[in-house]
Amino acid sequence: MATLEIHDLHVTVEADNATKEILKGVDLTVKQGETHAIMGPNGSGKSTLAYSLAGHPKYTITGGTVTLDGEDVLEMSVDERARAGLFLAMQYPVEVPGVSVSNFLRTSATAIRGEAPKLRTWVKEVKETMERLSMDPAFAERNVNEGFSGGEKKRHEILQLELLKPKIAILDETDSGLDVDALRVVSEGVNRVRETGEVGTLLITHYTRILRYIKPDFVHVFSGGRIVESGGAELADKLENEGYEAYTTKGGVSA
């Protein structure tokens, strides 16, 4: 069973010629089949955690360990992490001009699966997955994320999640910028992947709204660069009613 283990993770960024510590000792274990929600106020470091796990070069790991099935993730390059089974659905997906969605998806699937998918079954697979996400087939010929609306970008991220079938999926604010219909469609996509039981999900969100569609097994409150409280789904209800105030005064948001 695939397991992602994060232990005492410390991360800094360079900003205005100063080094700033954002993550201050994160501990978390995510197993295949489990869904963990990470909830926290703006600026608490949620995206930093997601990017650090994916290996974004802007973030420097200054302490701690991250392993996937015992393998040292921090030693791996960005593409190696993806091929090892880590997937990050980004809060702000990047536009790649001149590269069509269909070319991108196929290149990516080839890299992840280790061989080029057979053209006929692949075309069908992409088409059906897009249909389920209510994506216009014309998207396949558009350039990656170029001119996509916020909602379209998020659907495109979940399309990749469904096609690439990672072991561990990190979804960074996949719910932000979605209207109710889009939220439902996107959540259904995530649930299809979860139902296989083969993915561990780390669902990063600011609001409890998405948790009505995607039921977490565990909820963690993130504040000031670390997890300050963990519990079951009921913790989300508490946050819904009381907000983050108790945690921001206690944990302290990095300025």
Binding site: A54, G55, H56, P57, S77, V78, D79, R81, A82, R83, L88, M90, P93, V94, E95, V96, P97, G98, V99, S100, N103, F104, T107, S108, A111, I112, N143, V144, Q160, L164
Partner: peptide, 22 residues
Amino acid sequence: QLFYLMARGIPADDARRLVVRG
């Protein structure tokens, strides 16, 4: 752009080629 493509498993050199070719 490079990070986004690599985060989908595409090796750095292939990612660069994809972008320039595009």
